[in-house]
Design a protein around this nucleic acid. Structure first.
Lengths: 237, 237
DNA sequence: GGCTCGTTTCGCCGTATGGCGAAACATCCG
DNA sequence: CGGATGTTTCGCCATACGGCGAAACGAGCC
């Protein structure tokens, strides 16, 4: 207790201080969908001038929460890693509805959303559970890996181009879904699959939130890949 | 994005501000093992005077992170709920070792520890997985519940007194283990079982950290209850 | 080269907040 | 009842930090 957490106390405080400013919090929330945005745009969403935004971004960068990608005269900021994204999502989600199941605010968000750059929500959990159950996803000591049978099925379904063996090399990680309280698939593998689903039109980004809207075709394909859709909340609710 | 997270931005900032002060962070870390401590003691661990500690505790209480239990002239502070404890643990753990498996700092902490008031770490994950696998723990829509067979086995093993049916009424919840990245058993059910293990001497609290030290007898009993111990990290490491 | 635009640095001010000591309560004990 | 102890409130000071405008820097573009 006494000596061991003497560093961690300052670590935690420093992390908290980064979130403590509404402007910084707004920036982080805006980046929680995995997007990379230039400083000016982040200044706008935070509602502050360019100068202050720059200072905030510098602090977030120094604190290890953001990374920069310079391109021409723009500087694109992005969340540094999915660990940060994971607990950020945990803190940002509407302060937990206590009782068993009165779902959190937006039903669309509960159904499917991005957690950083991978699929989360009921759909993400259902996919992870289904593939684990049928052996398409194997949990090893160093993370989750895709089975060759799954990679073939994904190619056959048109999600990825035929030589889909590159998927086997990616490492997935369990990431706690804070609305479902179960694991969904994160890590590079989760990012790759989610990206492919977006590219293939199975999912579409919502304009005004992190919700992901599955197309009818996408739902059909997912069902064919073993994902149980009967547990999804009614989108009309 | 724009309108939806306008409240959540302030919510997140407020939460961050509570962690932003080393003194408050120290208090929260001290309470992360589920203990309830009087204001004076928290002042000492935080390294501040009684007056300032009182102010900090008031803020944490107003912010919904702590609850008070008045007893005589003492006021015992405790973490408000296990949701708060969960993401607090996520943030507090040594900033993730990036590469696959170079384990976080303290091997004892990785092996078994308290997460709030329930068992976490490799042992907690192993227990949760084992009981789910043999059907002793069933995951329903509203949480996890113990099977009657498990309750009987726990009574037979001497963990709880013979009429163990009261365990069936408790609700458990999956809680992400941030060193293992898998679920362990939290919620009232997890708290009850962990408490029983402490009472029965299967586990012992470490003096200087949140680590839980299993006794030889405890490990034997756990193995009899189906928990695989071969995955535990070498305690001597 | 000179212009524009995006971004950062600098200097300044106002407020918020942490720290303490002293004093006020409250509770337990004799 | 009076004294000791734990906790909170009050008043004060010092500092940290966010906010902005102005200016500097750098990259693109004509």
């Amino acid at each position: 207790m006494s000596r061991a957490d003497l560093p961690s106390r300052y670590q935690l405080a420093e992390l908290g201080a980064l979130l403590a400013e509404p402007a910084r919090a707004a920036m982080l929330l805006a980046l929680l969908d995995g997007s990379a945005r230039p400083a000016g745009e982040l200044a706008r969403v935070a509602g502050v001038g360019a100068a202050t935004a720059s200072a905030h971004l510098k602090r977030l960068r120094d604190g290890g929460l953001l990374v920069v990608h310079e391109q021409g005269r723009h500087r694109y900021y992005r969340l540094a890693d999915d660990d940060a994204a994971a607990w950020l999502e945990a803190m940002a989600l509407p302060r937990a509805p206590r009782v068993p199941r009165p779902r959190g605010s937006d039903p669309a968000l509960c159904r499917a959303r991005t957690c950083y750059r991978h699929l989360a929500g009921q759909l993400g959990v259902a996919l992870c559970e289904a593939w684990l159950a049928r052996g398409w996803l194997r949990a090893g000591g160093d993370g989750m890996h895709l089975d060759a049978a799954c990679a073939e099925a994904l190619a056959a379904s048109g999600l990825v181009q035929p030589p889909s063996s590159w998927l086997l090399g990616l490492c997935g990680r369990g990431c706690l879904d804070w609305t479902e309280r179960k694991l969904h698939l994160g890590g590079p593998l989760g990012v790759a699959i989610t990206g492919a689903m977006l590219d293939a039109g199975w999912l579409r980004r919502s304009q005004r939130s992190r919700a992901l809207l599955p197309s009818d075709d996408g739902l059909r394909r997912l069902a064919q890949l073993g994902v149980r859709l009967d547990a999804l909340v009614d989108p009309a609710a």
